[in-house]
């Protein structure tokens, strides 16, 4: 398969997953505000500040908005085209990538993506976002699910499909780790607060942003405990949004692409992913908390980045370059070196 096509499929899928995750995060944070009583402005500000931090866009946000409010932050994460990770930006990029491989994907996939893209850029989208944000973010999530469902059911499960899976699962693992990491920050000041009312709300919210509440309660019947939530989202073997689950998928896709058997590797990407997976397979929550949850999650994000760039080097090595700015004309000028020529006779 052409590298350019594989590259576009990978990013197409990654951007859609990104849009979905951003929608989840914003939605849950909005809902959380409802759960809190007596939030003063300062608290609200803190609440949103942490969200901006989770996407590493504090500077950009400060340049564009006066202060973090529910409206400004959700606008920033949803519609702001300057923000490369906003839902609108993610969907635009997903569509751009889909256009590049329009001949490779099915009409249904293209139409669904195109519909989402046209919707988020419409006036109607803004209107709905104002009047019914939950409904709005649900539409984004549903769109992504429909797209993924279509991909599974109409796209041939060949090499291209594996690249789509890779993009989706790397992105998802990364986002789950970020969601956990942010809340970890909030909860950090006092470990003794663990088990308090605020805490339960916060950790429930995390589960909700990963659509994991029901699944969690299947496993842990009773209470929502930070320890268990973290364990569930990091180490669950079968919950599809857990980091471990996603890494299993990444590893499996990489192996199917190259045909390398398990426990071996044929390139850097497989080496990184194999390592990360066995780390997850052989970790317990005790180890994780002992090394520090934040540090642990940070390490996972770094590993995921490493896998991403190794995939790039292995399979897409020639990037979709901007030839216009890259190809230079080389021409040799006559008389270029005549600096020291003595004056000519007449």
């Amino acid at each position: 398969m052409l590298s350019r096509v594989a590259d576009s499929l990978f990013w197409l899928s990654r951007y859609i997953e990104r849009a979905e995750n951003t929608a989840r995060i914003v939605d849950v944070n909005l809902q959380m505000l409802l759960d809190f009583q007596r939030m003063d402005d300062e608290k609200i500000k803190d609440h949103w500040q942490s969200l901006i931090k989770s996407v590493d866009e504090e500077e950009l946000f400060d340049a564009l908005y006066k202060k973090p409010t529910s409206e400004s932050v959700t606008e920033f994460l949803t519609f702001q085209s300057e923000n490369p990770d906003s839902i609108v930006s993610s969907l635009s990029r997903a569509r751009e990538n889909a256009r590049m491989v329009r001949d490779q994907i099915s009409t249904e996939m293209w139409e669904e993506l195109n519909r989402m893209y046209l919707f988020v850029r419409s006036k109607q989208a803004r209107k709905q976002w104002k009047s019914d944000p939950y409904g709005f973010y649900k539409l984004i999530r549903d769109g992504s699910h429909l797209f993924q469902g279509l991909t599974d059911s109409v796209y041939p499960h060949d090499e291209g499909w594996e690249f789509i899976q890779l993009g989706r699962h790397i992105e998802r693992a990364d986002k789950t780790s970020r969601i956990l990491d942010v809340k970890y920050h909030i909860l950090l000041p006092s470990v003794r607060d663990v088990g308090g009312a605020v805490d339960v709300v916060q950790w429930s919210a995390i589960l909700r942003s990963c659509s994991a509440q029901e699944a969690y309660h299947h496993v842990y019947v009773n209470s929502v405990e930070p320890w268990k939530v973290a364990e569930f989202l990091i180490l669950s073997e079968d919950f599809p949004r857990s980091i471990r689950f996603c890494c299993q998928r990444v590893d499996a896709s990489l192996r199917r692409i190259s045909g390398t058997p398990e426990h071996e590797f044929s390139n850097e990407a497989e080496k990184c992913s194999g390592r990360l997976l066995s780390n997850l397979n052989y970790s317990s929550m005790d180890d994780i908390f002992a090394s520090g949850l934040h540090e642990y999650l940070d390490g996972i994000q770094r590993d995921l980045n490493r896998i991403g760039s190794a995939i790039f080097k292995t399979y897409f090595f020639y990037p979709a370059t901007d030839l216009e700015n890259e190809i230079r004309t080389q021409q040799h000028q006559q008389q270029q070196t005549r600096d020291h020529t003595s004056p000519a006779t007449s």
């Binding site: 052409l2 590298s3 692409i257 399979y315 020639y318």
Partner: peptide
């Protein structure tokens, strides 16, 4: 193009 031969970049 490498050594006057044309190739496509694939995975």
């Amino acid at each position: 193009v490498r050594d006057a031969k044309v190739y496509m970049r694939t995975t």
